[in-house]
């Protein structure tokens, strides 16, 4: 709609009013729009955490690239882990439009200042874990991510559209791995069940603490960065995986799971949030390994990045001179 304000110098109050108007109209905020500092900070925190999660998430799966049990599975896994690098890159780019540099984000990650999804601080000792990560972890991630395609910040939403499109195969390949194991030899079936036992609860915790204890949620929902509450998404996920586990012929390690006619949803048991908080605070089984590995790759690559930058500077100079 046409507005009458000549806008060369909007007062902060006017700018905020316009921002609220855009959010209320379900339109998108774009990088060069004015936005409240807290909105910017929240987005930087969320998008960079999301990017870090993709990058750290390469490790538990990358762990099995060299040992994948068939060449087809090796190719699928490699393509999947590669996608995660790509998704990290899309997200870092989105965060950069808010005025933070990649070097800064990397620094924050390897110094332990920035967080990432604690799910990646668990080990992947068996091949079945690659199935569980695809089915449960990526499944939970997709529940979280689909609504983010409509996040109010344009670049974030656009990155998520691309990511969701590419990730559609991730969950399916995980499901397929577990299906083959479950229907395979007894040893394979046991491997699958044991793995699902380990990943079920951490996957449910990926949606974050219960709504009553989630400090940032309300504001994020008001800003339309987040569209559904943690508990709503978690319920949606449980409703999805219960029938899927039956197809797999595997049991979810939660005795409280039963259909609740009245609610029209599956009930499920309480989760051990103490463990979640421990892992979040960096005391998970693999926190230090993941960060150390990221740091080492970054440090080992420093001379390469410098060499390429030096070469580019030199070529530039020569181009100017000629």
């Amino acid at each position: 709609m046409a507005k009458n304000t000549p806008s060369f110098a909007l007062s902060e109050q006017e700018a905020l009013a316009r921002f609220d108007e855009i959010i209320a109209a379900d339109e998108r905020i774009e990088p060069s729009d004015w936005m409240p500092d807290a909105y910017r900070k929240t987005l930087i925190r969320q998008i960079s955490q999301h990017a870090h999660s993709e990058i750290i998430g390469m490790q538990p799966e990358g762990n099995w690239i060299t040992r994948a049990p068939s060449l087809k599975r090796k190719a699928i896994l490699m393509a999947k882990v590669q996608d995660e690098a790509g998704h990290g890159l899309y997200l870092y780019s989105a965060a950069q439009t808010l005025g933070i540099g990649r070097d800064q984000m990397t620094e924050d990650l390897i110094s332990g200042k920035a967080k990432y999804s604690s799910i990646f601080n668990y080990h992947t000792p068996t091949w079945a874990d690659i199935g569980s990560i695809g089915w449960l972890v990526d499944g939970a991630a997709i529940c979280n991510q689909v609504p983010l395609c409509r996040a109010s910040y344009g670049p974030y939403g656009r990155a998520m559209v691309r990511i969701c499109k590419e990730e559609s195969f991730h969950q399916r390949q995980g499901f397929e791995i577990l299906l083959h194991l479950s229907r395979g030899s007894k040893a394979q079936h046991d491997m699958a069940q044991e793995s699902v036992n380990r990943w079920y609860a951490p996957a449910l915790m990926m949606f974050g603490p219960p709504d009553a204890q989630s400090p940032n949620s309300a504001q994020s929902m008001a800003w339309k960065i987040k569209r559904f509450s943690n508990d709503d998404l978690r319920q949606r996920f449980v409703d999805m995986i219960v029938p899927q586990s039956e197809v797999l012929g595997l049991t979810l390690p939660d005795r409280a799971i039963r259909w609740n006619e009245k609610r029209g949803h599956f009930d499920y048991g309480d989760l051990d949030w103490d463990e979640f908080n421990e892992v979040l605070k960096g005391r998970g089984p693999a926190n230090s390994i993941r960060l150390e590995r990221r740091k080492q790759a970054h440090d080992d690559g420093a001379w390469v990045r410098e060499a390429a930058a030096a070469y580019a500077a030199r070529e530039n100079k020569e181009a100017m001179a000629s």
């Binding site: 950069q96 439009t97 070097d103 410098e306 390429a308 930058a309």
Partner: peptide
Amino acid sequence: MSSPGGTEHDTWPLW
């Protein structure tokens, strides 16, 4: 006027 995402200095520039 501004450039998209070009606000910080990184080792490798943004494209």
